[in-house]
């Protein structure tokens, strides 16, 4: 069974609550820049949760690609597109359907948590088996160390998932060309024609 113990459990709760609060701040922040900074915080928290789940490679990719790449792109676009109207509270922040959306979201969250409550004991370790399984888990963790896990993911990426990997590189190329084409201005358009 899969259950975190001791400090890992405390860390899980801290990271999860931080991630959720920062997610709420992403949605409710007045300025897009603040929203982006809160999103960076959420992404780092989720990367730490990945490390808690022993997926170190994915955590590294998350930090490098998301926080290092995508969020910098977001910040650049926010700086290019920034209008003073939002800062000075002259515009509405939310659309007209925001109240029903939030209501439905809260109801969905409550219903999901209530629906998962009966499933909880099935995933929990029986008290007697807890100690030996914990020992087995530590052995397992020492066996499948960082390097091995990363190695196995890399092997799967280049063997079983080789075709999707190449398609992903093609997708990135197409996206790059498409972004350049979409974002060019009038002057550049004339230059190329």
């Amino acid at each position: 069974m899969f259950q975190l113990h001791g400090w890992e459990a405390v860390l899980f709760y801290v990271l999860a609550i931080m991630a959720l609060f920062m997610g709420v701040f992403v949605v409710t922040a007045r300025l897009a820049v603040h929203s982006a900074l809160f999103l960076i915080s959420t992404l780092v928290n989720i990367a730490l949760l990945f490390i808690l789940l022993r997926a170190e490679f994915v955590a590294g990719v998350q930090i490098l690609v998301y926080v290092g790449g995508v969020m910098v792109l977001f910040l650049f676009v926010i700086m290019l597109v920034q209008t003073r109207a939002e800062e000075e509270a002259r515009v509405r922040l939310y659309t007209r359907q925001s109240t029903p959306a939030v209501l439905v979201a809260v109801l969905l969250a409550l219903s999901f948590i209530l629906a998962m409550q009966p499933a909880q004991p099935a995933f929990r370790l029986p008290e007697t088996a807890a100690a030996q399984t914990a020992a087995a888990q530590t052995v397992d963790a020492s066996e499948s160390s960082t390097m091995q896990n990363t190695e196995r993911v890399g092997e799967a990426l280049y063997r079983q998932a080789a075709l999707p990997f190449e398609i992903a590189s093609l997708l990135l190329l197409v996206a790059m060309v498409g972004a350049v084409l979409l974002a060019r201005g009038r002057k550049q358009e004339k230059l190329y024609e």
């Binding site: 997610g23 949605v27 929203s35 939002e86 922040l93 939310y94 359907q97 925001s98 959306a101 969905l108």
Partner: peptide, 16 residues
């Protein structure tokens, strides 16, 4: 987190 994201998509005006 998913629900927070959905609420953000449905309720914000700023496309970024």
């Amino acid at each position: 987190l998913f629900i927070i994201g959905v609420a953000g998509v449905l309720s914000r005006r700023n496309i970024i």
